[in-house]
């Protein structure tokens, strides 16, 4: 319980930092003023509420959603390397949105972001089919490599389309690495609804996912239908990942980092792990974004790059620890 309180405090701190720390120093006083005594003629107040607020909301949605998606995926596949970014599900969502706006013949206007959901679902099904997940347990190595390949292909398509349309480098960064810099232009409301739906579904089926992780025979004996639980997990991961990509682009590695920490905070009860994942995911994403903004002013490092810089060493560490038997 204490660990959970600490995680929650970290999230509050991260949120305050997101709103207050920046290139133009405003500080906590300005935030308080903008929130309590908003003055529409003061450009600093406008900046806090119209630039920073969307950024905070996008960070909360994406961070919480990716953290929970990672936890569900790791629980279902029993694969410690599972992450929506590494397994290509983010890339599927990004690909669908970018293809959609190409076919519709206009720039992505936010509504296209709804395509992230079928994209994420398609990629999730594809990666499990190709990675051997349908024939029993998908080993970490196969699944990871299948994800890397799928992700490379889909993101190559995304790059090709964005470069062919001669769009700004910022658009490229959003759809290939993930960024919170364009948060104000994203459909935050719709994506928040999707994320809440995904969260509710995940929390509901969490105990049955736990039963499933005891092995499908045992789970059946306990009255659980493995196929239906897997379908439910797929829908939850799709809703969460699609929402995250819709607001922040394909941010990778958060789903790899968060579940390990969440297990410490939430104990070994999946429901509590999920809540901890949401809190920790949002906190880590917002911290990473804030650090990325202040580390080399005036340019900012996109949050997707920051999570990769933290997550890649973690991936190596975990790859070293995989037992030889676990790779089969």
């Amino acid at each position: 319980m204490r660990a959970m309180a600490v995680a929650f405090l970290a999230l509050v701190l991260a949120a305050v930092l997101t709103l207050t720390v920046g290139v133009r120093e405003g500080g906590f006083a300005l935030l308080w003023q903008a929130l309590t005594a908003f003055d529409p003629s003061d450009p600093a107040h406008i900046a806090v509420l119209s630039i920073r607020m969307p950024r905070l909301i996008a960070g909360l949605i994406a961070g919480a959603a990716l953290g929970m998606a990672g936890t569900i995926m790791q629980a279902i596949t029993r694969n410690p390397l599972a992450d929506p970014g590494i397994l290509g599900i983010n890339a599927g969502a990004a690909f669908a949105v970018v293809i959609g706006s190409l076919i519709a013949g206009r720039a992505d206007n936010g509504l296209m972001a709804a395509l992230a959901f079928p994209g994420a679902a398609g990629a999730a099904v594809a990666v499990f089919a190709l990675g051997g997940g349908l024939k029993g347990d998908a080993g970490p190595v196969r699944l990871t490599l299948a994800g890397v390949a799928l992700s490379a292909m889909l993101l190559s398509f995304v790059s090709a389309i964005i470069l062919a349309r001669n769009e700004a480098l910022e658009v490229f960064r959003f759809w290939v690495t993930g960024s919170l810099a364009q948060a104000g232009m994203r459909p935050l409301g719709y994506m928040a609804v999707a994320a809440v739906f995904g969260t509710a579904l995940a929390i509901t089926i969490a105990p049955r996912i736990e039963a499933l992780s005891l092995g499908s025979a045992l789970a059946r004996g306990l009255g659980t239908k493995p196929g239906r639980i897997q379908l439910g997990a797929l829908v939850a991961v799709t809703a969460l990942t699609g929402a995250a990509v819709g607001v922040a682009g394909p941010v990778a590695f958060l789903g790899l980092l968060v579940p390990r920490l969440a297990r410490r905070v939430g104990g070994h009860v999946l429901r509590r792990e999920l809540i901890a994942s949401a809190v920790l995911g949002a906190a880590i994403l917002l911290f990473a974004d804030t650090i990325g903004r202040i580390v080399i002013p005036p340019t900012e490092i996109r949050v997707g790059t920051m999570t990769a810089l933290i997550g890649a060493p973690m991936f190596i560490w975990m790859a070293r620890r995989l037992r030889a038997g676990a790779s089969a």
Partner: peptide, 8 residues
């Protein structure tokens, strides 16, 4: 590990 170095 190589994949990880590639990510990094």
């Amino acid at each position: 590990v190589g994949l990880g170095i590639g990510f990094l």
